[in-house]
């Protein structure tokens, strides 16, 4: 589903040149749940942004569902993000002046769906995260865990082929975090691939695969034990 070869990322800022990611290869199959671990500042977010077509890479090639994404226009990339990828962020990134329904509906607005289709999808997605009866509420009326559930509903509404989650539980206490993790696990079981950056090794252990990034070097690990070691 996702095939990266010799991808590398260099940041050029005025005088400093940061090699954020050393060249790496990565292959992710449909339905996989991959955890990305590593110390902070090592390049995890950069990797996730490249995967999500939010950032260009400096070299290498990237195929998404057998499509080369290197030379796509802004419009084409936006469309791929809209249809294939769902994003979940550490700080939820809900729009405070929109209610839950409108927040979840947002990605669907950039797609040619009828109002009825949009509504069905929003209700479906909110049902999946257990918040369908609160669709008229505003984000600030919810707890952090509930807000992250809304963000997950937003990522799911367009039925993407994979989710990218950047420390989705980073801002939550552990009981809420567990709830989010089991929700993601359910979503994965239902067929959506997930790439999740996390600090928490216990959560990483629930993934099918673990990728570790350290100082911009990406390595595959068979199991969580290797990371700990």
């Amino acid at each position: 589903m996702l095939k990266m070869s010799n991808i590398a990322k260099i940041y050029l800022t005025d005088t400093v040149k940061t090699q954020a990611l050393q060249p790496f290869n990565l292959d992710i199959k449909a339905g996989e749940f991959v955890a990305v671990v590593g110390p902070s500042g090592s390049g995890k977010t950069t990797f996730l942004n490249i995967t999500g077509l939010l950032e260009d890479y400096s070299e290498g090639s990237y195929f998404l569902n057998d499509q080369d994404v290197t030379d796509l226009s802004d419009r084409q990339k936006s469309r791929l993000r809209n249809e294939q990828i769902g994003f979940i962020f550490q700080s939820f990134n809900l729009i405070p002046e929109l209610n839950l329904f409108d927040n979840v509906e947002m990605p669907l607005r950039y797609r040619k769906f009828s109002a009825k289709e949009r509504k069905n999808r929003v209700v479906d997605a909110l049902t999946k995260v257990g918040l369908v009866n609160r669709q008229a509420h505003y984000p600030q009326q919810l707890s952090g865990g509930q807000q992250q559930r809304v963000a997950i509903a937003r990522a799911l509404a367009g039925s993407p082929s994979f989710l990218l989650a950047d420390e989705p539980t980073g801002n939550l206490d552990s009981s809420m975090a567990d709830g989010i993790m089991s929700l993601l696990k359910d979503i994965n079981t239902a067929g959506t691939s997930i790439l999740m950056v996390t600090h928490d090794l216990q959560q990483a252990a629930k993934a099918d695969r673990i990728v570790e990034i350290r100082d911009g070097v990406l390595t595959e690990n068979e199991s969580i034990n290797q990371v700990v070691a």
Partner: peptide
Amino acid sequence: GAEVGLRRAVGASKVD
């Protein structure tokens, strides 16, 4: 900026 970033991430093009 944050809203723009978010909308871009979920699929809004620059034109949108």
